[in-house]
Design a protein around this nucleic acid. Structure first.
Lengths: 101, 101
DNA sequence: GGCATTACTTACATTTTTGTGCGTTCCGGA
DNA sequence: TCCGGAACGCACAAAAATGTAAGTAATGCC
């Protein structure tokens, strides 16, 4: 459990994985989809996800550069889990029981 | 999704919730179950879980003091999710089954 | 009186995570 | 010649999470 969270935890990884569930995307598309993320964080998280085998990186040797990212089968195997994380928040009504930061 | 993770994320909350799935426990039992946690962290996380409505606190006005913690229905509604978080780590074979909490 | 017990709280230190701003590369077009 | 575009890398700074050590209260027991 701690292991699983170490792979998808943190502020940005869930958003990145969620975006990639819709298909292969390039760096700039991810950035546009998750506007608030800084470029530094986006690169860093993508690299970690890749190291952990959840996503794959496709580099096209062009100028300007083009890099695309896609979920690996392992990454796709998290879909149900991600869906549940999302659903639970919705089903419970996103309760502002007490302020959630 | 980010909302859900804000409630169960962090280093200790999953362990606490996981322990409480087995039933009501007092502070000292939790501490014994999760030996590595410091008392400061245990109190702090318990307080947050309570604020977010996932656990309930029962104080017995005795000396020495006794305080018990139990999952609320909302907390119990996370069982499937927690189970999936645990299962995913095991199923992917990234962790030896016997070492998983 | 002195000590052990339990569930904390507070002050402070350290570690981890995230953010900000700037530099780099290569090429083609104005 | 200068500029813009894409996907970064790096140094530094701020913020957030976690750890460490000590102290507190009330009571019963020796």
């Amino acid at each position: 459990m701690a292991f699983t969270l170490s792979l998808i935890g943190g502020r940005w990884k869930p958003a990145i994985l969620w975006a990639l569930l819709r298909g292969r995307m390039r760096y700039s598309e991810l950035k546009k989809t998750i506007q608030q993320i800084s470029e530094r964080m986006l690169s860093a998280q993508l690299r970690e996800l890749e190291e952990h085998g959840l996503i794959e990186r496709f580099v096209f040797p062009e100028v300007p550069p083009r890099v695309e990212y896609e979920l690996t089968p392992l990454g796709r195997s998290m879909e149900g889990l991600l869906q549940q994380l999302s659903d639970w928040g919705i089903i419970t009504g996103q309760l502002p029981v007490n302020k959630v930061k």
